[in-house]
Design a protein around this nucleic acid. Structure first.
Lengths: 255, 255
DNA sequence: CCGCCCCACCTGTATATACAGGCTAGCCGC
DNA sequence: GCGGCTAGCCTGTATATACAGGTGGGGCGG
């Protein structure tokens, strides 16, 4: 018995190394949804850890929705759920990176403009006030997956326009400048207009989720954004006091 | 040392009992946000379990956002259990009545059926278990505005099928029988299939919001519903501490 | 050939123990 | 009086071990 010792200082914890390896293999496609993952005892042999450590790695990945486990059978990769959101606003770049893919932003337009009635209303500014505007297409592995049109309140984030959106998403920048204290989402199914179709490379009648999102920081509206997701899912959950938020079953296009 | 033994058959697992007690004390207000929770070794003494078991209970509650922990200091109740009140599920009949319109339900199908894989998974029942099913079209001023296909867990609401859905919506009945403690929504933009198109009287390529909703009452899944809304909006908001989420501007099909 | 039982493998839970490292209060020496 | 050291409490991680209960396959007996 090799009496496996604590990881040397600076090394990642054992259970984290196991989680990372499994996540890597999923990201690289070596493990596909539905595939069987190494059992606890196989991980014990492979990593030289105790079963409790392997158990913890797998159990946490189950909590996180990555794996499904059932006693007597084994551990399996969950069906991919690209959930756009879960009650907190997530950064699309992070989500893409978590899936092990490459994020790129194509900047279509950035500049100043005068608020029309809709924009002024949404940002709670007066008609004709100067607002900042950006139109960005987010790509996952060079495939467009989100059109983001954003209007920003210059009183809250005056330096917005000088951000390098290739290295930092608008959302990332704004949450750094002004932490979100409230948000509002309005979700609709729409037929995208020709411009959006072009950006996303969609056929004519492909339905899109359109999310209209406003965020506040204290009393002020920071920004409103129009987000178009082709065929995406938009997920949220909540619980009142206890209650178990369980993983996800999709209940597909039944029959 | 009392050589604490496995819990007797039927009893809840030790770590679950600890979690439940803490959650109960939070629910009853004995523990307020920011309060210090018993340390692992105090729980060891109080429950007669090993520290690993107490650790698991606290760690999972941290994962679930209920507690915050920091080494050397202790474990504390997290501020704010996200504002679920704002995210309440509303009854479509009430909404229609609030708009001053007339609500009517057209009952397409009601009955028992065996759960297929998708339904069993969603309701957390075994494959082939009997579930109750209903398919209802909701009308606003005789215009169809929602298709509601619902699967109900008979263990929770055995009398579901004998409800008169003309005078009470399924949702209304179910919330009376089993108060909701958690829910999950998955929203997608879809092209509805021919059946749904027929019920809603839609043209071919009209995009629809499809909401897949599950609700829990305690540990049990009460129901899962597939809701189709033609061109509807689906709105949610939340705030973290204060922050004013104001009414809505739509920022329509701009340009 | 069919059915039943048992065994091998898997996860779920629990225990006792150990070492690490963060944090704080209090003591002790200068 | 003040600064530094230490003891004690706390969480974080890891190990070896044990028993439970679900699942499926193979072998054996009728």
């Amino acid at each position: 018995m090799t009496k496996a010792v604590k990881p040397a200082a600076g090394e990642a914890r054992h259970y984290i190394r196991i989680k990372e390896q499994i996540l890597t293999e999923i990201a690289e496609g070596k493990l596909q949804p539905g595939d069987r993952v190494s059992s606890e005892s196989e991980l014990v042999a492979a990593f030289g850890v105790s079963r409790m450590t392997a158990n913890r790695a797998l159990r946490e990945l189950m909590f996180e929705g990555v794996l499904k486990r059932s006693a007597g059978i084994g551990t399996f990769v969950s069906p991919k759920h690209l959930d756009v959101d879960l009650l907190q606003i997530r950064n699309i770049a992070d989500e893409i990176l978590e899936r092990g893919h490459k994020h790129k932003a194509a900047i279509v337009a950035v500049g100043l403009m005068k608020a029309d009635a809709n924009v002024a209303d949404a940002l709670e500014l007066t008609l004709g006030a100067q607002v900042m505007h950006s139109l960005i297409v987010h790509m996952e592995n060079d495939q467009p997956i989100q059109v983001e049109e954003r209007y920003v309140n210059p009183l809250v984030a005056p330096d917005y326009l000088s951000t390098d959106f290739h290295s930092m998403t608008p959302h990332e920048y704004l949450t750094k400048v002004a932490p979100i204290t409230a948000f509002e989402h309005i979700v609709q199914a729409v037929k995208p207009d020709t411009a959006v179709r072009k950006y996303l490379g969609l056929k004519n009648d492909y339905p899109c989720l359109r999310v209209f999102r406003r965020t506040w920081s204290g009393e002020a509206v920071v920004t409103c954004a129009l987000l178009y997701y082709p065929g995406a899912q938009y997920r949220l959950e909540a619980r009142s006091t206890k209650g178990p938020p369980k993983p996800v079953a999709i209940l597909g296009e039944k029959k």
